[in-house]
Design a protein around this nucleic acid. Structure first.
Lengths: 125, 125
DNA sequence: TGAATGGTTGAACGATTGTTCAACTGTTTG
DNA sequence: CAAACAGTTGAACAATCGTTCAACCATTCA
């Protein structure tokens, strides 16, 4: 631990505020929780998925409806719906060969509203 | 518009619910707004950035503090701080050669709380 | 002045992501 | 039954993203 490994491993910092670091460390959520949280926000981070979610806020819709509304292929819409379905943001109901999609809960509205507030306020800057 | 372009351009749908599509179209936010919204959520969609934001909720910190806290290189932390800075989620203050970062406003807390509620409730499923 | 340190930067890399395409399943209808 | 259509799927592709690495700037201090 003399010469050879001096530049290895560590962030080369004379830690400035060890007390702050220690205190903050005690307040941090679990790593797994933060990964889940990041994955949740990732669902809202694509404009196609946001469009689908905003549409479903207004009405139950089938894949064809959505693809016409957004001017996108059914395949593309279906891929995104699968992601939203797997994450429980969206639910569906079959009626013959048509599948109707709708929002699974109210979280979508709340989360979108919070994000939108930030977007709209930033216009003032 | 007879034979040759019949399979071009359009999503091959006998639109099922034209009235629904028309009504929903009237309620959709602008494309630009939805792109901005997606970009906002993208900021929260990486766990490193979330860790930084959660840390700054507790205390003003310098790059060294954060990199020690997270066990990451200063470079990596600095890259992420640049993104957060450019998006006005984070502000900074210089003191000699040390730069202290802190949250720019309360939106970060609100948005993280909304997302976290969704994550924590999903445990019950 | 020059060494040490806090912090930034840009290129390079591998990993992840969204769309397209083509083939496919399943249901309806003539 | 066969054609038509709603919807799904997986491979392939380009684009985007986060980390690493090395070089760099700026400030302090001996």
């Amino acid at each position: 631990m003399k010469f050879y490994d001096m530049e290895l491993d560590r962030t080369d910092c004379t830690v400035i505020h060890q007390e702050v670091v220690d205190r903050v460390r005690g307040t941090m959520p679990d790593d797994d929780t933060l990964l889940d949280l990041a994955d949740t926000f990732k669902l809202f981070s694509d404009s196609t998925r946001l469009k689908i979610l905003y549409a479903l806020m207004e009405a139950e819709m089938c894949v064809c409806d959505i693809s016409v509304l957004l001017g996108m292929s059914k395949s593309s819409v279906s891929h995104q719906l699968r992601i939203l379905k797997q994450s429980n943001l969206v639910k569906y109901r079959k009626a013959g060969r048509v599948i109707y999609y709708s929002l699974a809960d109210e979280h979508v509205r709340t989360i979108c509203r919070m994000g939108m507030e930030h977007v709209l306020e930033d216009v003032e800057d």
